[in-house]
Design a protein around this nucleic acid. Structure first.
Lengths: 127, 127
DNA sequence: ATAAAGGTTCCAGTTACAGGAGAGTAAAGT
DNA sequence: ACTTTACTCTCCTGTAACTGGAACCTTTAT
């Protein structure tokens, strides 16, 4: 497969596949005479794996770890769970922060009349 | 005031104050003979204003707009409310997405035994 | 006089790519 | 065979909002 085909099958931009090569995340299995990257089915599976992991906002480095575990016969589910748990904790922290922001901002927005006069509780808060 | 003093009073790093000068967000009122930035009380109020707005994760460009409205006698609270509302909608969208991620990942993490065997529903999902 | 603290500019790095230039290669149509 | 179109290559720049560090100069304290 050339890069356009695998990118389509993995449902990601060609640019991204090239980037993953550059950072040694998923390498092509070789190059054609003209220097085109060539990929096999294993690479396709890895790219799809990464796309799914990225959809959870796992960092590229977490993806690298997960991908290592993916093909590691000696992996333990504890290893995998640890990475996923870490991500879950991050998500929960972000959720808590967003909730705080949301409530405070919603309060201010609710208190602002939004008319053509200048007085505004949002500005009062910020200034 | 020199940069170190205003940075301390505004509770932000010197680097950040210098950055805000560079992007024309908050400029010093002049320079000393030695080329040191000098700031006045108005600049301090602006920096504090920005710090508070940034705490809501308003983008620097939104801060720029808000700061413009802050000193605009002809502003309307509708202008302010529109910017805040936009940010609120962004926050709510992010919250919804995080909730989806959280639930799905929490489900997978909950289903993973996390022991020393290799089989793992998280890997099954990703692979 | 000297040393510490604080100021200056400029450059690199962060994250995970996206956009585009310029050039070569492959595939398809006539 | 020739041309057009579609791919692919590398290299460079830009994103957001700073942070860290180098090399150098000024102010302040001892």
């Amino acid at each position: 497969m050339k890069i356009g085909e695998i990118a389509k099958k993995a449902d990601m931009p060609v640019k991204t596949v090239r980037y993953y090569d550059e950072i040694d995340l998923v390498k092509p299995n070789g190059r054609s005479d003209a220097g085109y990257r060539t990929y096999d089915e294993a690479a396709l599976r890895q790219l799809i794996f990464i796309r799914r992991a990225r959809a959870f906002d796992f960092s590229v480095n977490d993806c690298r770890e997960l991908l290592g575990l993916y093909t590691d016969q000696a992996r333990t589910s504890a290893d995998v769970k640890a990475i996923a748990k870490k991500r879950l904790v991050e998500i929960e922290a972000k959720q808590a922060e967003l909730q705080r922001l949301h409530d405070e901002l919603a309060h201010l927005v609710g208190a602002c009349r939004g008319d053509n006069r200048p007085d505004c509780p949002i500005m009062d808060y910020l200034g």
